[in-house]
């Protein structure tokens, strides 16, 4: 005898246990990221404050003696060359003679846009399809064919809507959209309240290139049934996202 409440409790425990490593991993990554951000912020803050302190020190010392100011200018030259050299290495050469010690040269040294490093979409697509061979796999089975033929005969005899839906699904999954359309149509005529059958019928219509008819069918069915699935399919067909 099943103890459902106990099973539900155990299921919850299982789910927590199942997702716990992901949660810990995620938290660690977040913490590491936050730590790195904090470290960057602190180091940037320290260098900025030291630069600021240098500037104020220079500004304070400038008016004191004009001769020293002249000397200061000559002292600053090497650092300007450093900045120029830095700019030369950058992909875009800035020609403007920038004033002393501004953060702008740092900006010019940023790495090139990410777009350049992006792989070719066609290439990535082919990789994806190559790494996922299951989807391209097609298995031809003689016995499955005889089985479905047997089921079709049984459907003719019994006119069972659920069997009709099963056969329609079978054909749709194998790309036999005309057959899927026929069986979904027959199923709908036996029982017009099966959501899935109407959906399959409309999907088959789209696959057969009769999109307008599919939309019309879904609109009518939605008016009658208020089916969320029908509405979602209609939206996806209208927006062109249905595949």
């Amino acid at each position: 005898m099943l103890n459902i409440h106990d099973l539900e409790r155990r299921w919850l425990r299982y789910k927590i246990k199942h997702y716990f490593p992901y949660f810990i991993g995620g938290t660690l990554i977040l913490l590491a990221f936050a730590g790195m951000m904090g470290w960057f912020a602190t180091s940037a803050g320290t260098s900025a404050s030291s630069q600021e302190a240098d500037n104020t020190h220079k500004q304070e010392s400038m008016p004191a003696d004009h001769t020293t100011m002249q000397t200061d200018r000559t002292i600053l030259e090497p650092s300007m060359r450093f900045v120029e050299a830095f700019q030369k290495n950058a992909p875009v050469v800035q020609t403007s003679s920038a004033p002393v010690l501004t953060p702008k040269p740092a900006i010019t040294t940023l790495p090139p846009p990410k777009m350049l490093q992006m792989p070719d979409p066609a290439q990535s697509h082919s990789v994806a399809s190559a790494t996922n061979p299951d989807k391209s796999l097609s298995i031809n089975r003689n016995e499955s064919k005889t089985d479905i033929e047997e089921l079709q005969i049984r459907f003719k005899e019994t006119s069972n809507a659920n069997l009709g839906l099963f056969i329609a699904k079978y054909h749709y999954d194998r790309g036999n959209y005309a057959e899927a359309y026929n069986y979904a149509l027959k199923t709908n005529s036996i029982n017009s309240r099966i959501d899935e059958s109407w959906i399959l019928f409309s999907k088959s219509l789209v696959k057969l290139g009769r999109t307008e008819q599919a939309k019309k069918t879904l609109q009518l069915y939605y008016q009658q049934s208020n089916s969320e699935a029908a509405k979602a399919l209609l939206n996806s067909i209208e927006h062109g996202t249905f595949k």
């Binding site: 099943l2 099973l7 155990r10 299921w11 425990r13 299982y14």
Partner: peptide, 16 residues
Amino acid sequence: PKWVEMAAIHTGLIRA
């Protein structure tokens, strides 16, 4: 899927 997992727990296929 939840009930499939519950059935797997019941049959001992999942330890919980």
